[in-house]
Design a protein around this nucleic acid. Structure first.
Length: 850
RNA sequence: GCGGGCGUGGUGAAAUUGGUAAACACAGCAGACUUAAAAUCUGCCGGCCGUAUGGCCUUGCCGGUUCAAUCCCGGCCGUCCGCACCA
């Protein structure tokens, strides 16, 4: 009597066996001996309290790699922990009047239980949460050492202020002018903040991208653009007329187009330029103009639509090469944050400058001549010319190419002592101060006598106070007088603690090193870098850039040592899990489990109201199109849920969760079991010999699965498993027992990567006492991977007309003769001239006739 | 505006990267088993013509290179993503 596979019975049983054997614990370098190491890591989760399908897919992918590496003899580190600081805990505290720590640790307990139900091959012995004092205490140590090295500093600056979360945001965390978490329009505020000197590493972070061969091109491009290197000239324009106080030297500008200096027709200062601010103090009209500029929002649309406006200061500067004066304006499109906050305008060859010049009737002087244009008649209309060409109207630069002219202009300016070649970066230093409670306290104190004083390491960790209230908005630490008041470590006098906490992205930028070892650098050096990192693209310039920076910075203070400073040697960015969306006739979002299909239409289960199907979108609470992993595990088992997230789409692409699809995967699990169930009671493990179709198919399938997994093509690996199952089922009736048992043995070891519980069940059914997780990856019989005879398609003028059977080593002449004689080919070449016959050995024959 | 990706059956997709387009799966259709349903199994399943052997067409559109193009080149169209007043 055939039995059904019951995941509800089998899965807990095997998880218990794995736990009892502690089978996923990473070995120490000494225990590992000669085995190579493999550090496989998925981006650790925020403990929101609920697992979602995106987690399942993410961790299932990492698990395939970890299991594959383990089977191939690697010493694998595959840890799990929690990115546990952050706003949601404080929001919960405000809403539910619960301590953020209590809320967080409860969520961690809940999610850990959910994770454990997935049967992932995780080493839980290294688990930690970033809100553990042990962890953030070490982070404070890192902070202090970076401070000592000058890689951390404090300065007053305009910062992005999120009015909803009531905190500062880093540039990377402002998306379209809105806070990345709250979605609220970000305001500019002047605050004294802590910064990490990431710009010190701009060049290195950019150069390092070249070495990351196992990273997606897309992510590398995004980071390169974010770092935004540009080469140019930084130079000074000297005053022609009046000289403002404090600016006797002139005005510094940065340009990437020194070749167009002869086209300069105005200079523009940022509204926030120190000179502008100084002038505005004595000039009400300019003051009003600055206020006008400040009114324009920071949102994408606002900037896009903002008209270019300017204010003539009445000041003039000298052209460096010519005897002429250039007016100095203030213009709203010049940013204080880039270059020097001042530019020279060359309207002919820059669209913004042209728009500005046309509006204020400033000269437009073309100096780059497109090839084919006539220098006498060439004019600029509404569009600036930014293409290639030859320099003209430019004295000593005339006739040169743009590149040559740039070099010549820089050389000349340099020799005149007015400026130097300069590389500028778009990247800004990383502002890490956050005015929040639930984060890592910054370990310094403010002393009225000594100023900012770093705490000695012996006083770490600086713990968060337990007593905390969220009755009023703002930072609870700032009004916690008992916690704030302390002694200055330098003079012993009364002092107050720093109340800013660190951006939670600091927590996540070194956690992978903490998994490798708590303090022992030897083990950190052994495990790092992470060999395979898996996570979402949304961190392309946030977490992934910060981590690359911190890895380098920690290298400087002796706490990390990785080649090229790169913490992640391989990166894979996975797609999301999506689902159809549903709305009822009132326009409310409906959850999939409230919807029932009746014939061709969908209705609400409770009211019977019609339901309309919307677009397939990322699973989200707001659209209510989520599917709960726990429910899926209860219904189908963890193996099926995991398998399905990998089966239908390439891993980097989104996968649509469908009920029918999961049911298909569940049927597959049953077919697999039926196959093993039908084996003899005690299968004999006589070595399989010979070259039966089944053996050939099986060995080829193992090779195909291995290759697909190597290349992160899990959907293809799954398709191979499906196809292989069909083959074995068809062969089962007639196959030799040894061949059949061998096929099942090979199959179960491949299946283990995707459906580990079922694979264990199958392995046990084959009569093994040991666990399949200890089974090595199968050795292949190479001779079975190549066929003795092959079928070649025969084309006539590119159209397939027949097939011929040939031996694998047949010489082209024989193949050609066979093809020409084939009855299927004959009618198509009869009466025509065979011009040429192309024989591609092992591939195809093409006969060209006229 | 700049940069990048993608476009293949009703659907998700595959194609050893120049060599038989549509593997595998979902949905659908037909049949077997069943009193019936579910489950399971078998067959069909890109389009057009044809009872059929078979023929013609087909990888967003147009063109090119080649014996041969989903793959390479040029030009369009659509779509998604990233960046964006960065001098």
């Amino acid at each position: 009597m055939a039995s059904r596979y019951d995941p509800q019975v089998a899965e807990p049983k095997w998880r218990a066996a794995w736990a009892a054997g502690d089978v996923y614990r990473a070995k120490s370098p000494a225990e590992a001996g000669d085995a190579p190491k493999a550090y496989v890591l998925e981006m650790f989760p925020y403990p929101s309290g609920r697992l979602h399908m995106g987690h399942v897919r993410n961790y299932a992918m990492g698990d395939v790699v970890a299991r594959y590496k383990r089977a191939n003899g690697y010493n694998v580190l595959h840890p799990m922990g929690w990115d546990a600081f952050g706003m949601p805990a404080e929001n919960a505290a405000m809403k539910q009047n619960v301590h953020p720590g209590e809320w967080t640790y409860q969520n961690i307990a809940d999610m850990r239980a959910q994770f454990q139900n997935l049967g992932l091959s995780l080493d839980w012995s290294r688990e930690f949460a970033t809100c553990d004092p042990d962890y953030y205490g070490d982070q404070q140590k890192i902070f202090l050492r970076l401070y000592e090295k000058g890689l951390v500093y404090r300065k007053a600056s305009k910062v992005n202020w999120d009015p909803v979360d009531q905190t500062v945001l880093a540039n990377e965390q402002v998306i379209d002018g809105k806070g990345w978490r709250s979605g609220a329009p970000v305001e500019q505020r002047e605050l004294t903040q802590w910064f990490f000197r990431i710009t010190d590493f701009a060049e290195d972070l950019l150069a390092g991208l070249e070495t990351l061969e196992r990273w997606p091109e897309k992510v590398r491009t995004m980071q390169a653009n974010w770092i935004g290197r540009s080469e140019g000239l930084q130079m000074r324009f000297e005053w022609a007329g009046a000289t403002p106080d404090g600016f006797t030297e002139g005005v510094e500008i940065f340009t990437t187009r020194p070749d167009t200096l002869y086209g300069a027709s105005f200079m523009a200062l940022s509204p926030d330029h120190p000179l502008t601010i100084q002038l505005a103090e004595k000039n009400d009209a300019l003051k009003a103009f600055r206020a006008e500029c400040a009114k324009v929002g920071t949102s994408e649309e606002a900037i896009e639509k903002a008209p270019k406006i300017g204010f003539d200061t009445g000041l003039t500067v000298k052209h460096p090469f010519e005897d002429r004066e250039i007016p100095v304006w203030v213009a709203n499109f010049v940013l204080m944050g880039y270059g020097t906050g001042a530019i020279f305008g060359c309207p002919a060859h820059d669209q913004r400058d042209l728009d500005f010049a046309r509006k204020y009737d400033l000269p437009v002087i073309p100096v780059v001549l497109p090839s084919g244009a006539d220098a006498e008649t060439y004019e600029i209309g509404k569009e600036a010319y930014t293409g290639s060409g030859q320099i003209f109207n430019s004295d000593f630069l005339t006739g040169k190419s743009i590149e040559d002219a740039k070099a010549a202009a820089i050389k000349k300016i340099d020799s005149m002592g007015l400026g130097v070649r300069k590389v500028n970066y778009r990247l800004r230093d990383w502002g890490v101060s956050r005015q929040r409670y639930w984060g890592c306290p910054i370990p310094v104190v403010h002393c009225p006598d000594c100023g900012v004083v770093a705490l000695p390491e012996s006083e770490l960790p600086v713990r968060l106070p337990e007593e905390v209230s969220f009755d009023v908005p703002g930072n609870p630490l700032a009004r916690n007088e008992a916690w704030k008041s302390t002694k200055c470590p330098k003079c012993g006098g009364e002092a107050t603690r720093e109340t800013d906490t660190l951006d939670t992205f600091v927590d996540s930028s070194w956690y992978y090193a903490r998994f490798a070892s708590v303090s022992d650098m030897d083990e950190r050096a052994y495990w790092l870098p992470v060999d395979q990192y898996v996570g979402g693209v949304e961190h392309a310039v946030l977490h992934l850039l910060y981590s690359r920076f911190i890895a380098r910075a920690m290298g400087k203070i002796g706490l990390m040592d990785v080649e090229n400073g790169e913490p992640f040697a391989g990166l894979f960015t996975q797609g999301m899990v999506t689902h159809e969306t549903y709305k009822d006739n009132r326009g409310d979002w409906i959850s999939p489990d409230e919807v029932r299909r009746e014939g061709d239409t969908l209705i609400r289960m409770d009211t019977g109201a019609p339901v309309s199907v919307g677009p397939v979108e990322k699973m989200s609470k707001s659209k209510r199109n989520t599917v709960d992993p726990d429910m899926m595990i209860a219904q189908f088992g963890a193996d099926v849920a995991r398998m399905f997230t990998l089966s239908d789409s390439p891993p980097e692409r989104d996968v649509e969760w469908t009920q029918a699809g999961v049911e298909g995967t569940a049927r597959f699990a049953q077919r697999v079991w039926a196959l093993f169930d039908a084996l003899p009671e005690t299968p004999t493990h006589a070595p399989a010999t010979g070259d039966s179709e089944l053996r050939r198919a099986s060995h080829k399938s193992v090779a195909a699965v291995a290759q697909a997994v190597d290349e992160f093509r899990f959907n293809s690996a799954v398709a191979t498993l499906y196809e292989w199952t069909n083959t074995v089922r068809k062969a089962a009736e007639t196959a030799d027992e040894a061949d059949l048992v061998e096929a099942c043995s090979l199959f179960s070891r491949c299946l283990q990567l995707f459906m580990p519980h079922l694979a264990e069940e199958c392995w046990a059914r084959l009569g093994h006492d040991s666990l399949i997780v200890h089974a090595p990856w199968p050795e292949l019989d190479e001779s079975l991977l190549v066929d003795d005879t092959i079928t070649l398609p025969v084309q006539v003028n590119g159209k397939k007309r027949a097939e011929v059977q040939v031996t694998a080593d047949a010489v082209p002449q024989d193949v050609e003769a066979l093809a020409l004689a084939d009855p299927g080919v004959q009618p198509h070449i009869d009466g025509k001239t065979v011009k040429k016959v192309i024989v591609v050995p092992g591939r195809i024959v093409n006969i060209v006739v006229v």
